[in-house]
Simulated assay, not measured.
Amino acid sequence: MTAMLLLLIILVFSLMIASATAINGNQTKPGCELYCGNITVPYPFGMGKECSIDEWANINCSTAFSPPKPFIGNIEVIEFSQNEVRLKNLVATSCYNASGFLNGFTSSFYLSGTPYRFSSTKNKFTVLGCNITGLAISVRQTVNYSTTSVRQTVNYSSGCGTSCYGRENIIQGSCSVGSGCCQSSIPEGFNEIYIELLDTSVENHTNSLSCGAAFIAEEDKYKFKASDLNFRNFPSLTEVPMVLNFAVGNQKCEEAKQNATTYACKENSYCYDLVDDGTGYLCNCSDGYKGNPYLNQGCQDVDECENPSNNDCEKICTNTQGSYYCSCPDGLYGDGKKDGKGCTKKNKEFPILQLTL
């Protein structure tokens, strides 16, 4: 009895290890960790140069925190996906104390030499305060496809100004009119940004509205509140995420496919060119497959027949690699599809009896 129990424990333990290996194997390279603390780090990212696709994707998993936290440069990562990264904010601030002296902090993001770009479609440059202007001065990086040389162009900028004369004039929940909060778009291709605040007020700075903040925010994740103008609440603004786009190569798909050694998209996946925010391409699993397109055997077949909501079969569903087909059981005919001919019962012919008198 004891031997059988021990054998059962070993079997269960082996299945648990196999299951964990399968899960990790579909998201990371063999032998690489999938998690940094509570954050999933899927390939092409990884912790260590052997676990990431390139140096830019080598994530620093800092054990100075409990649980550990992942960082790109000095910026904390809160989410990785197959086409973008979400980071915590670095907030630029300025505040006048009761004596009228200015205390302020600028913020800057330096990601040059990497394929990261601040998303121009999901982020907004956001400024909080009364009678204050925020500027985001940036560097745009372009890559020559034929030589892979990098050229940087300065003087791209984004900015906006606020105006208000007291809390009663502040409009909650909106940055569209510039009362206490304003937002402006970020041009495509930025990967270095320096943020600063300029005071445009002519009044004495002795009240709680003499503070300002500026940051890059994912537009759908930030809703302006008057309480955000209080400098004591500025630290909470770092929790508003900003979005980085990235690419796995500095070529278009058509060119990248010519070199099988460096081409990043593996079997059962396809390549697509970046449309906004830089150069390069990304990969995605083909229809009928799911998983990680950057890993060998990373895109696995989806069994559409497991869940009836994933197929349109009326009776019989048969899974195939990357697809499925419908059919009817014996005695019925049709294409077997709910939105097609379905399955219809075959008419039975009754025999005719001939009587002779």
Rank of each mutant, 00 (worst) to 15 (best):
M1L: 13
M1F: 12
M4Q: 10
M4T: 08
L5W: 10
L7A: 15
L8D: 02
L8G: 09
I10M: 07
A18W: 09
S19Q: 11
T21A: 05
T21K: 13
T21I: 11
I23E: 09
N24Y: 10
N26G: 13
G31R: 13
E33F: 08
E33H: 10
V41K: 08
V41R: 07
P44F: 10
E50K: 15
E50Y: 09
I53R: 14
E55L: 06
W56K: 07
N58K: 07
N58R: 10
N58G: 01
I59D: 04
A64T: 12
F71D: 14
E76P: 14
N83M: 03
V85T: 14
R86D: 12
N89F: 05
A92Y: 02
Y96V: 01
N97T: 06
A98Y: 08
L102I: 07
G104A: 09
F105L: 05
S107L: 05
S108V: 08
S112A: 07
P115I: 01
K124D: 01
K124S: 07
K124V: 02
N131I: 01
N131L: 08
I132L: 14
S138Q: 10
V143D: 00
N144Y: 02
S146G: 03
T148D: 12
S149Q: 15
Y156T: 11
S158W: 03
C160I: 14
C160T: 12
S163K: 04
I171V: 15
G178H: 02
G178A: 02
C181D: 00
S184Q: 06
E188N: 14
I193M: 15
I195W: 03
E196G: 00
L197A: 06
L198T: 10
N207I: 10
S208I: 14
L209D: 08
S210V: 00
G212T: 02
A217D: 02
K223Y: 03
K225N: 01
A226K: 11
S227M: 07
D228I: 07
F231T: 04
F234P: 00
F234H: 12
P235T: 13
S236G: 07
L237R: 03
P241L: 08
P241S: 07
M242P: 04
F246S: 03
V248G: 03
N250T: 02
K252L: 06
K257I: 02
Q258V: 04
Q258Y: 02
N259D: 15
A260W: 02
A260K: 15
A260I: 11
A264P: 13
E267L: 03
N268P: 03
C271G: 07
D273E: 00
L274V: 04
T279K: 06
T279F: 05
Y294N: 12
L295F: 12
Q297F: 04
C299A: 02
V302H: 01
E304K: 00
D312F: 00
C313W: 01
I316A: 01
T318W: 00
T320R: 06
Y325E: 01
C326R: 06
S327M: 13
G331T: 14
L332G: 04
L332Y: 15
G334T: 12
D335I: 08
D339Q: 14
D339V: 00
K345T: 15
P351Y: 14
I352R: 11
L353F: 15
L355A: 09
L357Y: 11
L357P: 13
